[in-house]
């Protein structure tokens, strides 16, 4: 060997899995694309503008924040892109164009970078930004819903005044017979089919369960996300809504609860955010069950029609505690 050549001495392991942070993040971006296409199909080209604004501003804010905090600029890792995409998915299709920009600023600068940047934020940036927007501009966030191109806001032809979950909240003032009629319609095959395919009003990325599930299956099969959180989350929602459906009459069916609102989007794409959810296997199950419980509590008894985003935010805050409770058992003890 040539004397001038120097051997590299480093600790084992000397081989590594090929997975990288970038690959993981970009996989999530790819998994969100079917739902994005669906959103454009259902709500028109305006969706593209909203998504473009939220994504572009997220990436720009990430760049500015990293520069001004003296951190390494990592805008190509896909992390800000996901935040922008998810934030856009959580906005009503008719919202004004400043909303995604304001939301991105809050998500990236305050939630993510004020707390240390990638890996250190304690709540999901996109969801925190959504909560911020709901509180700051409630009318834009609740009145910006429009019916899909070939359907109605509620997914039922006869009722057009509200999204399905809002409809249930409003029916509490109805007479018992009128209520039963509405619930019957919501439980009909047609209504569930509309919910499943996305032919219904809602935030622009959450309406089509089918398109979100296609992305989710890709993430599960490529092991980008763990099945534990989505399974326990959806399972809990299913169980509670089933009990509710069987013992309280009249109530929407478990299928209605699974496919309405932002549950599928939340369970597969936001409750599985690595940074803000437990890393322990058991902790993930507890996290999912907690999300399911709170979602159903809000949907059935709360003042808001939808509880997915708040349930995930609440469980985000619980994450350090859950992790402490659920440390795996160490071999030999």
């Amino acid at each position: 060997m040539n004397e001038t050549e120097v051997l590299i001495v480093s600790y084992a392991p000397h081989i590594r899995d090929r997975i990288t942070v970038e690959k993981l993040m970009w996989s999530v971006v790819i998994a969100l694309l079917p739902a994005l296409v669906g959103a454009v199909y259902f709500f028109g080209l305006r969706v593209l503008m909203i998504i473009f604004l939220s994504v572009a501003s997220s990436v720009i804010f990430e760049f500015l924040a990293q520069k001004s905090f003296g951190r390494k600029v990592t805008i190509y890792d896909g992390s800000a892109l996901i935040t922008g995409l998810l934030l856009g998915f959580n906005l009503p299709p008719a919202c004004p164009y400043f909303l995604p920009v304001a939301g991105s600023a809050f998500a990236v600068v305050i939630v993510k970078h004020f707390f240390g940047g990638l890996g250190y934020n304690f709540v999901n940036p996109a969801l925190a930004a959504r909560a911020f927007l709901v509180v700051s501009w409630p009318s834009f966030m609740t009145k910006g819903f429009i019916p899909p191109r070939f359907g109605s806001l509620s997914g039922i032809d006869a009722l057009t005044q509200a999204t399905p979950l809002t409809l249930i909240k409003d029916t509490k003032t109805l007479s018992p017979t009128a209520l039963a009629e509405v619930i019957d319609k919501l439980n009909s095959c047609d209504a569930i089919r509309n919910l499943f395919f996305g032919n219904v009003g809602g935030c622009l990325g959450e309406t089509s369960a089918l398109l979100l599930l296609i992305g989710a299956i890709f993430l599960l099969l490529s092991k980008v996300i763990d099945y534990r959180i989505p399974l326990s989350y959806l399972g809990t929602v299913f169980l509670i809504s089933l009990i509710n459906f069987l013992f309280v009459k009249p109530q929407p069916s478990p299928l209605f609860h699974l496919f309405s609102g932002g549950l599928i989007l939340g369970a597969f794409f936001m409750a599985t955010d690595y940074v803000t959810t437990p890393i322990t296997p058991k902790g993930r199950v507890i996290f999912g069950v907690g999300c399911g419980l709170i979602t159903m509590l809000i949907r059935l008894f709360g003042g808001y029609p939808e509880g997915v985003s708040y349930s995930i935010l609440f469980m985000n805050i619980m994450t350090p505690l859950i992790e402490r409770w659920t440390k795996p058992r160490v071999y030999g003890y």
Partner: peptide, 13 residues
Amino acid sequence: AECIRCGRCVAVC
């Protein structure tokens, strides 16, 4: 890179 808390190290230990 920064730890993104994906939990892979926990799963394989």
